[in-house]
Design a protein around this nucleic acid. Sequence first.
DNA 1: AGGCTCATGTAACCGGTTACATGATTAT
DNA 2: ATAATCATGTAACCGGTTACATGAGCCT
Lengths: 182, 182
Amino acid sequence: MSLAHSILGFLNYEKITGYDLAKAFQSSVQFFWHAQKSQIYPALNALEEKGFAAHETIVQKGRPNKKLYCITEKGREELFRWLSGGGVQALDDFKSAFLVRVFFSGNTEPEQGIRLFARFLEDCEKALVRMESIPADIERYAAIAPGDAPLYWQFTAEFGYSYLKMCIAWAESCIAKLEEIR
Amino acid sequence: MSLAHSILGFLNYEKITGYDLAKAFQSSVQFFWHAQKSQIYPALNALEEKGFAAHETIVQKGRPNKKLYCITEKGREELFRWLSGGGVQALDDFKSAFLVRVFFSGNTEPEQGIRLFARFLEDCEKALVRMESIPADIERYAAIAPGDAPLYWQFTAEFGYSYLKMCIAWAESCIAKLEEIR
DNA sequence: AGGCTCATGTAACCGGTTACATGATTAT
DNA sequence: ATAATCATGTAACCGGTTACATGAGCCT
């Protein structure tokens, strides 16, 4: 299960609340992993029960109390065990409802196919624009991060960038082929 | 929900049993969509209840009877409605436990990062080899398929090919950067 | 006045995975 | 003998999504 381990990953950077964890997910790994609050809070409880995390309650005035979580030694061990771990199966979890749609679009009009790819293209280009702020984000957080973390963050950002570029080129070539037969 | 619609997509090609549907999934869309028998059989029942599919029982000797399913007019309408449908969100369903691992690998030794990417590279290259038979497969099935189906099958195959090529180039560049700092 | 932020959670539901169950036939 | 193929399913579980609940404070 990756959710628990990615939470451990964040806890390994700094003490954090469930609320801020949700924001951390959104502003970093959201391109390749999502986590809702409704998942995060129970997951934190589960991590604590297993002895992988601990929390202190911070009493606040005027706003709700918060629980600051930190990773334990046992949790750090579990994180590193997982990082070096065997069961990778990196390609098996690829899934795309969009490609299913493409696959079965054979008896629609070419115009509809073109529209399908055009919308996809647009989404990809919007995502590319959104990615522009990432290098600055990485630099901003580089201070808190131990070791080579920013390098690895960059690796995942480059993956996203290459992926979107590839998708755009692919969609354009599909559209070109459909325009030929129209 | 894509499972129901991809089943309708297959039923739109020809009458088929749940058993053969499972094989069809495995030998065609398995790169971007999986479906187990334990999902397919209940899904076929649900499609029938909604009036999107119907079945005839074929009595056999020496082996179990089978249920041959076909798509109904209502089911075909639903399929085309879905194909032309709005809610695309083609990028939102991207998910990768592997990239999570990469993201949090910042305080491991460079050697471990290199191993992680090397294993990924290997998986990609194996997948590329497995893809070699696809053009022949597409040609073999082109006969039964109506309209431009083979073209769209090819589109998805080209996506897979481009994706793997991109992954390989990316992993190689990550390894190169890690070897620099080692 | 209305909506957003902070902060924690619960409950119902849904889709997918794994394991289990049956039982004859055919290929190695 | 053993395993795979044919053919249908059920049950338990697990992870994730959506909606709901609370309630003070702050911004427009």
